[in-house]
Amino acid sequence: MKAMGQPPLSPSTRLTMLASLSLSSKERETMLAAFGHLSQAVESLEGFVSPEATPATTFSPQKSRQEDP
């Protein structure tokens, strides 16, 4: 699915968010791979919830007001 919102953070940008944790080189390698999957997942979600993909009406204010005592 094509992303409609912001591009996801890159795996290397995500790794900088862990800078204070002093990861070993093996851990950095593991997390870079995991963050690659995460970035792809985020990109898919952007397409799923983008304004273009959202139905015009998912909420009816008039109905809600009527139900509100």
Binding site: L9, R14, L15, L23, E27, A34, V42, V49
Partner: peptide, 17 residues
Amino acid sequence: DRLYLGLGISAGEYLLA
């Protein structure tokens, strides 16, 4: 490793989810 993954998610992405 899972906790590290969570720390690599931004606030905006959390709200997106």
